[in-house]
Deep mutational scan, measured.
Amino acid sequence: LHIEINVNGLRIELHNVSEELAERIREILEKVDDREEARRLAEELIK
C-alpha cells in the first residue's frame, strides 16, 4: 500500500503501511508546529 500524506506543507510518502498507521502518523505530525521537526519525527516513525 502506498499512501501520501500532507502535513503543514510537508509531503510524506509511506510505503507498505496500513491506512490506520498512516492516519496515526498524520495525526501525530499535525501536532508538531516546526516543519523540520515534523520531518525528523516522520523519519523516526517509519523506520
Rank of each mutant, 00 (worst) to 15 (best):
L1E: 09
L1N: 13
L1G: 12
L1H: 13
L1R: 04
L1D: 10
H2R: 09
H2I: 15
H2D: 12
H2W: 12
H2V: 15
H2E: 08
H2F: 06
I3D: 03
I3A: 06
I3P: 05
I3G: 05
I3E: 04
I3L: 12
E4D: 07
E4T: 15
E4Q: 12
E4Y: 07
E4R: 02
E4W: 11
I5C: 04
I5N: 02
I5Q: 01
I5Y: 04
I5M: 10
I5K: 00
N6I: 14
N6F: 07
N6S: 09
N6Q: 10
N6K: 05
V7E: 05
V7A: 07
V7G: 05
N8C: 09
N8F: 01
N8A: 10
N8I: 03
N8D: 09
N8G: 12
N8V: 04
G9T: 03
G9M: 00
G9N: 03
G9V: 01
G9I: 01
G9E: 03
G9C: 01
G9D: 04
G9S: 02
G9K: 01
L10T: 12
L10K: 02
L10S: 05
L10E: 07
L10R: 00
L10Y: 15
R11H: 15
R11F: 13
R11W: 13
R11Q: 09
R11P: 05
R11Y: 13
R11A: 10
R11S: 13
R11G: 05
I12D: 01
I12F: 15
I12T: 02
I12H: 02
I12E: 01
I12Y: 12
I12S: 01
E13G: 02
E13Y: 11
E13P: 08
E13M: 09
L14W: 07
L14V: 08
L14R: 00
L14T: 02
L14Y: 06
H15P: 05
H15M: 09
H15Q: 10
H15L: 09
H15I: 12
H15E: 07
H15K: 08
N16F: 10
N16V: 06
N16P: 03
N16G: 14
N16E: 06
N16A: 07
V17E: 03
V17K: 02
V17F: 09
V17G: 11
V17P: 05
V17T: 06
V17N: 03
V17H: 04
V17W: 08
V17Y: 08
V17R: 01
V17D: 02
S18L: 04
S18K: 05
S18N: 09
S18G: 07
S18R: 04
S18C: 03
E19W: 15
E19Q: 15
E19V: 14
E19G: 09
E19D: 10
E20S: 10
E20N: 06
E20C: 03
E20W: 12
L21P: 00
L21E: 08
L21K: 02
L21S: 04
L21W: 08
L21V: 14
L21G: 02
L21M: 12
L21N: 03
L21A: 05
A22P: 01
A22M: 12
A22Y: 12
A22S: 05
A22F: 09
A22G: 04
E23R: 11
E23F: 12
E23K: 12
E23D: 14
E23A: 13
E23G: 07
E23S: 10
E23M: 12
R24E: 07
R24A: 13
R24V: 10
I25G: 00
I25C: 00
I25W: 04
I25E: 00
R26E: 03
R26L: 10
R26N: 04
R26C: 03
R26G: 02
R26S: 04
E27A: 11
E27C: 05
E27L: 14
E27I: 08
E27V: 08
E27R: 08
I28A: 11
I28V: 09
I28E: 03
I28C: 02
I28K: 03
I28S: 03
I28D: 01
L29R: 00
L29D: 00
L29F: 14
L29I: 07
L29Y: 14
L29N: 01
L29A: 03
L29T: 01
L29Q: 01
L29P: 00
E30A: 10
E30P: 00
E30I: 12
K31M: 12
K31N: 14
K31H: 13
K31P: 02
K31S: 14
K31Y: 11
K31T: 15
K31R: 14
V32Q: 06
V32D: 03
V32A: 09
V32M: 11
V32P: 02
D33H: 15
D33F: 13
D33C: 05
D33Y: 15
D33E: 15
D33P: 14
D33L: 15
D33S: 14
D34E: 03
D34K: 02
D34Q: 03
D34R: 02
D34W: 03
R35W: 11
R35N: 10
R35D: 09
R35Y: 15
R35G: 10
E36V: 08
E36M: 07
E36D: 14
E36Y: 06
E36N: 10
E37A: 09
E37K: 06
E37R: 05
E37D: 07
E37L: 11
E37Y: 06
E37W: 05
A38C: 03
A38K: 02
A38D: 00
A38H: 01
A38F: 08
A38P: 00
A38I: 09
A38Y: 04
A38M: 11
R39L: 15
R39N: 08
R39E: 07
R39H: 10
R39K: 14
R39M: 15
R39W: 15
R40L: 11
R40Q: 10
R40A: 09
R40I: 09
R40C: 04
R40D: 04
R40M: 09
R40P: 00
L41H: 03
L41F: 05
L41E: 03
L41P: 00
L41Y: 04
L41M: 12
L41Q: 12
L41N: 01
A42L: 15
A42P: 00
A42R: 00
A42W: 09
E43H: 09
E43A: 08
E43L: 15
E43I: 13
E43K: 04
E44P: 00
E44V: 07
L45T: 05
L45S: 02
L45N: 01
L45W: 06
L45H: 02
I46V: 12
I46R: 02
I46F: 06
I46K: 02
K47V: 13
K47M: 13
K47F: 13
K47I: 13
K47N: 14
K47G: 12
K47H: 14
K47Q: 15
K47E: 12
K47S: 14
K47Y: 10
